[in-house]
Amino acid sequence: MSSNKRITTTVIQERKVAGKAITMLTAYDFSMAKFLDDAGVDMLLVGDSLGNVVLGYDSTLPVTMEDMIHHGKAVCRGAKRAMVVVDMPFMSYQVSTEQAVANAGRIMKETGAQAVKLEGGQEVADAVKAIVRAGIPVVGHLGLTPQSVHSLGGFKVQGKEEKGAQKLLDDAKLLEESGAFAVVLECVPALLAQKVTDSIAIPTIGIGAGVYCDGQVLVTNDLLGLFPGFTPKFVKQYANLHTQLAQAIAEYRKEVEERAFPGAEHSFKISDEVLEKLY
Results as ranks from 00 to 15, higher is better:
164 G>V: 00
171 D>S: 14
162 E>D: 14
180 A>V: 13
184 V>D: 03
181 F>N: 10
172 A>Q: 01
177 E>Y: 03
179 G>P: 06
176 E>T: 01
158 Q>C: 05
162 E>G: 11
183 V>P: 00
192 L>N: 10
164 G>S: 03
164 G>K: 01
191 L>G: 12
182 A>F: 12
173 K>P: 03
165 A>E: 09
158 Q>K: 14
164 G>I: 01
182 A>R: 09
183 V>K: 04
159 G>V: 09
160 K>Q: 12
161 E>F: 13
194 Q>L: 08
196 V>Y: 13
183 V>L: 01
170 D>F: 03
190 A>M: 04
177 E>I: 10
158 Q>I: 14
193 A>C: 11
195 K>L: 06
165 A>T: 11
192 L>S: 08
171 D>Y: 11
173 K>E: 03
174 L>V: 12
184 V>P: 04
166 Q>D: 08
159 G>M: 05
187 C>T: 03
172 A>C: 04
166 Q>F: 00
157 V>S: 05
189 P>I: 08
189 P>V: 12
160 K>S: 14
163 K>R: 14
180 A>L: 12
176 E>A: 03
183 V>H: 05
193 A>F: 06
174 L>M: 11
185 L>A: 12
181 F>A: 11
160 K>C: 13
157 V>D: 10
165 A>K: 07
186 E>A: 00
172 A>R: 00
173 K>G: 02
162 E>M: 13
158 Q>F: 12
192 L>I: 09
188 V>F: 02
186 E>V: 02
191 L>I: 15
158 Q>Y: 14
188 V>N: 04
157 V>I: 09
156 K>F: 05
160 K>A: 13
186 E>Y: 04
182 A>T: 06
158 Q>A: 12
157 V>T: 06
187 C>E: 06
179 G>V: 02
185 L>T: 10
165 A>F: 10
168 L>Q: 00
